[in-house]
């Protein structure tokens, strides 16, 4: 079942020039979709567009069959979308636990169980729960950021470069966690700079170039595609 379907998105920042030129992204239920591409290709912009932080001039976003193109980011959170931005993705002067609590702000039920799940997924987050998030290492911060987004119990989790600035071991671990999250039925759309590793775990891969889809295929097929290998994966 197609869970997220963002079709033919065209738009830019404010009244500026278009950055997305007909970009299409689809994610199935419980599937991991990965966007790769050169710096400045518009990957982050595409994520923001899907999340409603950008006015689309053309195109639509459907979530679970419903057209959400006109909804604000907050309304999309209520619809079951969670987003971890590329930068500034934590509350630095609040404790790790408070970061998680704020992630669950829209919920009125008991959040303890979800907090325990996040602690289980990321033991480092549990260890640092009473420390200010701004005092953590880059990798720990990313884990807090992902944990915060999981607190709303989203159906679609969007991650913009979750492994940025993370050591290779933590990166592998983070990818393992992401696979675990996907297994629980959550769809994942993520942008990754570590294209090779990301495509290995991806059910579907998108290569974005200058705001448009250059290649779309399964992760394995993109890894095997000689042209993609040569131009984007460095041989």
């Amino acid at each position: 079942m197609t869970f997220l379907h963002a079709s033919e998105m065209r738009g830019g920042y404010g009244s500026g020039a278009d950055i997305l030129h007909g970009c299409t992204l689809t994610v199935q239920k419980g599937e991991i979709a990965v966007i790769v591409g050169p710096n400045g290709a518009g990957k982050s912009t595409a994520m923001k567009a899907v999340f409603g932080m950008l006015n689309l001039r053309e195109g639509h976003v459907h979530l679970g069959g419903e057209d959400i193109t006109q909804l604000s980011p907050q309304e999309r959170v209520y619809k079951g979308m969670g987003f971890v931005p590329q930068t500034h993705n934590i509350f630095p002067t609040m404790t790790v636990r408070e970061n998680l609590e704020m992630g669950a702000f829209i919920r009125n039920d008991d959040i303890e169980e979800t907090i325990e799940q996040v602690y289980e997924l990321f033991p480092a987050v549990k260890d640092k729960r009473n420390q200010n998030a701004g005092e953590l290492s880059g990798g720990q911060r990313q884990q807090v950021a992902v944990g915060r987004a999981l607190m709303t119990q989203p159906k679609l989790l969007m991650l913009d470069e979750p492994t940025a600035g993370v050591s290779p071991i933590v990166m592998d671990e983070l990818f393992d966690r992401i696979i675990e999250v996907a297994r629980t039925g959550i769809s994942i759309l993520m942008v990754e700079q570590n294209a090779r590793q990301a495509l290995e775990i991806a059910d579907k891969g998108y290569v974005l170039v200058q705001g448009a889809n250059a290649y779309t295929d399964t992760g394995a097929a993109l890894l095997a595609n000689p042209e993609v290998r040569r131009t984007f994966l460095g041989g």
């Binding site: 987003f83 931005p85 509350f91 829209i106």
Partner: peptide, 21 residues
């Protein structure tokens, strides 16, 4: 909760919005 949401907003306005505050 309300007080914490104020601190969150002060800390990182965009993320506060993304959290539904």
């Amino acid at each position: 909760r309300t007080g914490k949401s104020m601190r969150a907003f002060s800390d990182n306005e965009d993320l506060a919005l993304l959290s539904g505050i």
